[in-house]
């Protein structure tokens, strides 16, 4: 299938999933386009539109939690950053995604213990 067409389909399907979770597509359209294109390639090569910024292991249980949108499986961590790891999605109230910083899983868990 044509890459652009599939990108549009993923966008429509994923919008339905992220909306009730309080997320939207990043206002950074260039980034969104790039990431969706990577996901279409990953889907062609590996069978699913995996996150372009997280590593697959080949173990189904692990990898299925990295299929986009992977927010439900990393909810608290992503909520703390107001974005998902690759930045395809941001919280609905975010206007400038460049102000958001990636917080690693370890940092997130340490901050949770402190609070």
């Amino acid at each position: 299938m044509d890459t652009k067409k599939r990108m549009g389909q993923l966008r429509t399907m994923f919008q339905r999933v992220i909306d009730p979770l309080g997320y939207k597509f990043s206002p950074d359209e260039e980034l969104v386009d790039f990431l969706l294109e990577q996901e279409v390639t990953l889907e062609k090569e590996k069978g699913s539109p995996f996150c372009p910024c997280q590593g697959l292991t080949g173990e189904r249980e692990h990898d299925m939690q990295l299929v986009c949108p992977c927010i439900p499986f990393h909810r608290e961590h992503f909520d703390a950053m107001k974005r998902c790891w690759c930045g395809l999605y941001v919280h609905k109230d975010v206007d400038d995604p460049d102000e958001l910083v990636q917080i690693s899983k370890k940092e997130f868990e340490a901050s949770r213990k402190r609070s």
Partner: peptide
């Protein structure tokens, strides 16, 4: 070995994983 290194640092395989000397920064920062 990359996976083992990430896990040894208490991290998942979230990229980029950047080592500067003895320190590790996960993410673009």
């Amino acid at each position: 070995s990359i996976r083992e290194d990430c896990l040894a640092h208490g991290e998942e395989m979230s990229f980029p994983f950047v080592k500067i000397g003895e320190d590790v920064v996960v993410g673009y920062n």
